[in-house]
Write a protein that binds this DNA or RNA. Structure first.
Lengths: 326, 326
DNA sequence: GTTCATTTTGAAAGCGCTTTCACGAATCGC
DNA sequence: GCGATTCGTGAAAGCGCTTTCAAAATGAAC
C-alpha cells in the first residue's frame, strides 16, 4: 500500500480511503490512486484490513452435511447473494455431531465474522453461549421454533408431517404408514413422523404405522415397502420422510405388481428432481430450500446495512405438491 | 491475551507459545496458562494471529456449483479431512462463469490462504497469473491434463468417454448414440462426448450419433430417447453424460415398451444413488468424486507439513460399473 | 482581502497477535 | 566446581491496514 501511495503521490491513508470509501476522496486523487493500484497490481491484504477494522467480510455457516442436497441448495443461494456483496462464505460441516458443531462455531467466532449461520435449533450449551455472546447477527436456519438465539428462518418439520397426515386423512385412508430414517440424530425426520402420526390420529382416531429404516436412499425404500406390507397388509397409503425412499418404494411396488395410486398411495418429502419425473409423478412435500437461503442472505444484508434492523423469526412453511401418486 | 497473561503471571509471549506450540513451554507454565485461558473463556483472535503469522488457516476452494453432487461430495471429504487439522474451507462458486472465477480467486488470494483449490483447467489469463504468483500450494482438481499451474488431481473426461465408446464397441453395437447437455460451458461433458465418438469410430469405423440436450435432469432424458430413436431408429445403445438423463430415458423406454438391455442398452455417468437402484440397475461410469477430495486434502496437508514436498499431477481414473443395463 | 465553515489530506496510533532476540537459569562435561 | 551449553522466558518490533485527529486547502460570504 505504501508503494501505491508513493506512486500516486499521496499518503497511505488516502490510498486506503480511495479504495474503501471512494466518496470521501476527491475525484482527482481517487483516479490517481486507482490507476497506481492497478498498475502495480496491488491487492489489499484483507487480513490486515480486518484486524484494523472491526469485522471480517466472512460469513460463517455451519451445516450438518454438504452432500445433503437441501442444504446445498440453501448454501448455493446464500453464496450467490452474499458473494455479490463482497462477503465470503466460510463453511463447516459437523455430520450431525453437536460437539463438532460447537468446535466449528468456536473456531468461526474467533474470526469476527460479519454473521454466523447455523442449522437447526438443537445446540450444546457451549454453542448457545458462544452464539449468544457474539456481536454479529446469528441466524438459526431450517427449523422454526419459538425464541431463536437471535434470528430464525426456517419452517416446522412437525407441520410438514401434519400436512401429510392431514392429506391422507382427508382422502379417507384408514391404514397408513410413515417410513423414515428416524434413528439417527435426525430430529427433523422424527418431528415429521411425529406430526404425521399425531395429525392422523387426531383426524381419524386411528394409529399410523411408523417404520424406521436405516438410511435415506433408494435401496432402503425398496425394502421398506415389503416390511410395511408384512406388518400391516391393509396399508393403502405410505408417506416417506424422503423422496428417494419413496422412489425406492415405487420401484418395489412396480415389481410387486401394485398399482399406484389405486392400490397404494405414496407421498414423498423433499421435491427432489426425481419426484417430478417418476412414473407416475411423485406427490411430495417441498421444503423451502432456496427460499431459506435467500431469506437468510437478505436478512444478513439488512442487518449489516443497518445494525439496528430488527431480528426476525420467520416460518417459511412447506407446500404439498400434488402430482400423481396420491 | 494480556489478561490471560496477567492471571497466569506470565508474559503475553508465553501465553502465545503455550497455546500455539505447547512443546516449547515448560509443563508447569503451560498448565497455568491453559487454566487461566479456560477460566477467562479466552479465544485467540485468529485475524491478529494470521496477520502476525505468515498464513491464514483458510483454504480457498472454488467450484462451479454447490448443488452439483459431484463437487459436493469432493468438498465434503475435503472439509472433513481439513477441518480435523484446524483448517477452514472458504468456498466460492462461479456457476461456470470464468470472470466470476477470477474475481473469486482474486478475493481469496488476498486472504493469504494456506492453499487454493480450483476446479478444472480452463481459467482466464488473469486467474492463471494470480494463481501462478501465489505463494501457497495451488491445486486444480477434477480435470486431468498436462502441466498444471502447480498441482493437478483429477481424471480425464475424454478417457471416461472413450471407456464408454469402447464398451459399446466391444459389445458389437453398430448404431449407438451419446446424449448430453453439451451446449453450456460444460467442457467436461463435451470431452466425454468427444472421447466416446472418437473411440467408437476407431474401434468400429462407425459414426456415433451425438445428441445435445438442454439440461441434465430426468425430464430431458425422457425426451431425448424419443429424439434419438426418431433420428436413428436402429440405435441399440445409448450412453449418457449423466445418470439422471439415463434414468429419464429408462422411464421413457419403459413407457414405450422397450426392454432394457435386450432392445436398448443404456450407460450412465456419475454413479449417483439412483443408478444402483433403478430397475434394471443402471450401468454407469463412476468419477472418483470422493477420492479427489481425499487426494486434494492429503496433498495440501503434505505440502503444508513440508513446503519442499513435491508437486503432483494425478490421474485418478474412472471406473465402469457394470450392472444390468448393458 | 479577510474571515469562517467546510472539505481534503496526512501523521500517527493502534488492531491482537507471533516471533526474533537477548538474557538469566538450569544443565552438562571434565 | 567452573565454564560451556542448553532451555525457558520476557521485551519489543512488527504484520498491513483503518481511523481518529488535527492541519491544510478550498470555497463562500462579507
Amino acid at each position: 500500500m505504501e508503494e501505491v501511495a508513493r506512486v500516486a503521490g499521496v499518503s497511505p491513508a488516502t490510498v486506503s480511503r480511495a479504495l474503501k470509501s471512494p466518496e470521501t476522496v476527491s475525484e482527482k486523487l481517487r483516479l490517481r490512486v486507482q490507476e497506481a493500484a492497478t498498475r502495480l497490481g496491488y491487492a489489499p491484504n484483507r487480513i490486515a484490513g480486518s484486524l484494523a477494522g472491526a469485522r471480517t467480510p466472512l460469513i460463517g455457516v455451519v451445516v450438518p452435511s454438504l452432500t445433503n442436497s437441501f442444504f446445498a441448495a440453501t448454501l448455493d443461494r446464500m453464496s450467490a447473494l452474499l458473494d455479490a456483496k463482497g462477503y465470503q462464505l466460510m463453511i463447516g460441516q459437523h455430520d450431525y455431531d453437536s460437539d463438532r458443531e460447537e468446535r466449528i462455531v468456536t473456531a468461526f467466532s474467533s474470526w469476527n465474522p460479519s454473521a454466523l449461520v447455523v442449522t437447526g435449533r438443537d445446540h450444546t450449551r457451549g454453542t448457545v453461549s458462544i452464539l449468544s455472546a457474539t456481536a454479529c447477527p446469528v441466524i438459526e436456519m431450517w427449523d422454526h421454533d419459538e425464541r431463536p438465539i437471535d434470528s430464525g428462518i426456517g419452517f416446522s418439520n412437525r407441520a410438514a408431517g401434519r400436512l401429510a397426515g392431514q392429506h391422507f386423512a382427508s382422502q379417507g385412508f384408514e391404514h397408513v404408514a410413515y417410513v423414515g430414517a428416524l434413528l439417527e440424530q435426525d430430529t427433523r425426520a422424527r418431528a415429521r413422523a411425529g406430526g404425521f402420526a399425531a395429525e392422523f390420529l387426531a383426524a381419524t382416531g386411528r394409529q399410523a404405522q411408523i417404520l424406521d429404516v436405516s438410511s435415506r436412499d433408494l435401496g432402503e425404500g425398496c425394502k421398506a415397502l415389503a416390511r410395511v406390507l408384512a406388518t400391516q397388509p391393509e396399508t393403502r397409503a405410505i408417506a416417506f420422510s424422503g423422496d428417494m425412499l419413496a422412489a425406492g418404494a415405487m420401484f418395489a411396488a412396480e415389481r410387486a405388481g401394485l398399482r399406484i395410486p389405486q392400490d397404494l398411495a405414496i407421498l414423498g418429502y423433499g421435491d427432489l428432481d426425481i419426484a417430478a419425473h417418476m412414473n407416475p409423478a411423485l406427490s411430495t412435500i417441498r421444503p423451502p430450500r432456496n427460499e431459506i437461503g435467500e431469506a437468510v442472505a437478505d436478512h444478513i444484508l439488512a442487518r449489516l446495512a443497518d445494525p439496528s434492523a430488527p431480528k426476525q423469526n420467520l416460518d417459511l412453511g412447506v407446500e404439498l405438491i400434488r402430482r400423481a401418486t396420491t
